[in-house]
């Protein structure tokens, strides 16, 4: 059992939890992920590590409530326990030797982009952070991002906060003005990462996307996290989750990510009805 040391809502559907897992906290690097189960009946949920505190022995995860399993997870109280918490899985984001980097995060993907930006900042890289959200209510981790960024761009789809537009707007603007980066690292919705890749491609800037496909074991066994990269089948759990964004077949990945949409919708409905019962 793994204690939930701290729990807080970052916005109405995004939750941060600090979990006691000293061995994982000691080992996890930016870009790696964990798999957790809320309880004995629970689904295995892969979540990228959002931060670690080696001293306190805790690992931070940030998740969005999407389906039944994440709803169950969100109901667990601070001081409560997770049934399982395993990691660190996947290969860490490659940051060595990068001097000037743009980190482009979207939505809850910013939770994963932040430790990458933080690690880059810590090694002395020049970090340009571009983060995007649908609207002001959904903005998370702004303060934390600003702390580790040399330049920071806040975008919202509806313009309710920061600049109106998507993350590609400032990115393209920078690139058009002749800016260049050793690497662009993008983490967020597949469609956003696809457009970021398209934006950097003409400039030949190496671009890395962090994939978050459907997954079960996270150790290379089930093969459901397969992603086509440069025409080759790769497993995100052991070969990734970071891949060359210019080589990823995003269209296939987007379709695959919708495999269980119907199931998740039903699970959500079931859970919501359960909550209704508890209330009444």
């Amino acid at each position: 059992m793994y204690e939930i040391v701290k729990k807080e809502a970052l916005n109405p559907t995004v939750m941060r939890m600090e979990i006691r897992a000293p061995l994982i906290a000691k080992k996890a690097l930016a870009g790696q992920f964990v798999i957790l189960r809320a309880d004995e009946r629970g689904e295995r949920i892969p979540l990228t590590v959002a931060g670690c505190d080696v001293q306190a022995g805790t690992v931070t995860v940030i998740f969005q409530i999407v389906g039944g399993a994440t709803m169950t997870l969100a109901t667990l109280p601070q001081g409560g326990h997770l049934a399982d918490f395993v990691g660190p899985l996947g290969t860490p984001t490659h940051i060595e030797g990068l001097k000037k980097v743009a980190v482009v995060g979207g939505g809850v993907g910013c939770a994963i982009a932040l430790p990458v930006a933080r690690a880059l900042h810590a090694q002395g890289s020049e970090v340009t952070s571009i983060v995007g959200f649908r609207n002001q209510d959904l903005v998370i981790l702004e303060k934390e991002f600003r702390e580790v960024s040399d330049r920071f761009f806040m975008m919202t789809d509806d313009g309710s906060y920061g600049e109106k537009g998507n993350v590609c707007v400032p990115l393209s603007r920078l690139l058009e003005s002749g800016e260049t980066f050793d690497e662009v690292i993008t983490i967020g919705p597949l469609i956003m990462m696809k457009f970021v890749a398209a934006a950097t491609k003409p400039y030949g800037i190496h671009t890395v996307a962090s994939m978050n496909p459907i997954m079960i074991d996270g150790t290379g066994m089930c093969g459901c996290c397969r992603v086509t990269v440069g025409g080759e089948m790769k497993f995100a759990c052991v070969d990734g989750p970071d891949f060359d964004a210019h080589l990823i077949d995003f269209d296939e990945a987007m379709k695959r990510s919708r495999t269980y949409v119907e199931f998740e919708a039903k699970a959500r409905e079931k859970h919501c009805n359960l909550f209704k019962k508890e209330v009444s």
Binding site: I216, D217, T219, G220, M221, C222, G223, C224, R226, T228, M233, F235, D249, E252, K255, R256, R258, T259
Partner: peptide, 22 residues
């Protein structure tokens, strides 16, 4: 030995294609 093999044919990334392991 848990790493599943695929055939390398067209369509293996489609929805509804599983490794037996999965």
């Amino acid at each position: 030995a848990g790493l599943p093999r695929f055939m390398g044919i067209k369509g293996e990334g489609a929805k509804g294609v599983f490794s037996a392991n999965e």
